[in-house]
Each structure stands twice: as C-alpha cells, then as structure tokens.
Computed example of a mutant assay.
Amino acid sequence: MKFYSAEKDAFFAGELRARYESAGSWPADAQEVSEAVFEEYSGRPPLGKARAVGPDGLPMWVEVPARGVGDLLSDIDQAAGNARERFVSPGYLVDQEYKRAEEAARSFADAGYPASDVPSAVSSWASAKSWTAQQAADDIIATADYWYGAIDQIREIRLAGKAAVQAATADQREAVAQQYIDQLNTLAVS
C-alpha cells in the first residue's frame, strides 16, 4: 500500500507506517493511493510539468512556465560539472596533485623507468598498490588518459547542447536541453 500526504506532497510506504508513527512522522492527512497513482506521480514529471497537490488532495501535474535560455544553459553546465566530478576528484588542490603525479609519471616513463630516479608521486602509488614503479607510472598515465578522454567527451556534449538550445525554438528548448543533460547524467553515473 502507498499513501500520499498533500501537506508534505510526498508518498509513504504503508508497510513502514508503524515505524513512521513510532517516530512521530506519519502525516495526519495521509490517504491511500493506487499503485498506478504512485507510479505516475513518484517518477520524473513529463516535460514542462511539475507535481502539485490537486483540489482533491491527490497529486496532479501542473504546467511549469517555460524556462529561459540562460537557465537551460546553466542546467547543461551543472550536469557537465556533475559528470566531471565522476572522473576527477573534487577538492582543494586535488586536481593539482593528480596533474603533478601525471607529469612525474610521464617523465619517468619517457626516461625509461630508471630505478635510481623514481619520482615520489610514482613511488607512493607503487607502495600503496604493492606494484613496481613501472606499473604505478603506467597506471597513473592510463588513468590520466582516461580522464582526459572523459573530459573531452563531456566538453563535446556540453558545447553541442548549449548550441542546440540556442538554435531551438522556444517550445523545443526544454526538450533539447534535457537530451544533453540526460547524456551528461549518464556519464556521471557510468
């Protein structure tokens, strides 16, 4: 059984009611809804719609005013940022740490992996993974190349999406933007 609270504009699982009640969080206005109502209104809304409370206290779709080009372009940039974070660890100077390790690994590999001159960024990774210095350097380089490929793909999708939104008619913009946001979101979780 599923229940819907108009006050909270949220669904609640009937099988967890006792837990909600013992925690004091079961909504007083919860009313049982069919599985069909739950499935329709608990997922992603149709394009241009948002869930709202209907006059009968049940969920319904309402029109959302069209968003401006600037908002849609920002949404694409945000999705690209989320996708980038999947490939590059966020944090203060972390990107610099990875860049320095990559540069050291490439120099070490270009020099023929000299055992007498292993950069600390390579030796620390080799030590952490119980690898040889060459294995560590090759892994650092392969990871960097993978990230660059992903970042290039993200940039390509982001720029193509922004251009497509700007070229689209007003009534097509949201759908066009969503196509590119979906592509970026797929990268972010893959």
Rank of each mutant, 00 (worst) to 15 (best):
A66L: 13
A83K: 07
E40C: 13
A128T: 05
R44Y: 13
I154C: 02
W131F: 14
Q31Y: 02
G91K: 07
S124W: 09
G24I: 08
P114V: 06
Y180N: 12
F87G: 09
K49C: 14
E21F: 01
A177M: 10
S89F: 12
M60A: 06
A126L: 06
Y113M: 05
Y113C: 04
G14N: 06
A6I: 01
S89I: 10
S123Y: 04
A177D: 01
T186P: 02
S25L: 03
Q172N: 06
L16D: 11
R44L: 14
S42T: 07
I157V: 07
A175Q: 10
G48N: 11
A18E: 11
R19K: 14
A79S: 12
A10S: 14
A105G: 04
L58T: 06
Q179G: 11
W147K: 07
A144W: 13
A30N: 06
A121H: 05
S130W: 06
R86D: 15
A66D: 11
E156K: 08
E32H: 14
E63F: 08
P65N: 14
P119K: 09
L73C: 00
A142V: 02
L159V: 02
S124Q: 13
A6N: 12
D29R: 05
E85R: 11
F12Q: 13
D95R: 02
I181K: 13
A101N: 09
L72G: 00
A50Q: 14
D145R: 08
D75P: 03
Q31T: 12
G68E: 13
E103H: 11
S5D: 07
I141A: 03
F38H: 02
D95G: 13
N82D: 13
L159D: 10
V33Y: 02
S127I: 04
A164P: 00
G24L: 09
Y20G: 05
A128S: 15
A144T: 10
F108G: 01
Y113Q: 02
Q153H: 12
G48R: 10
I157C: 04
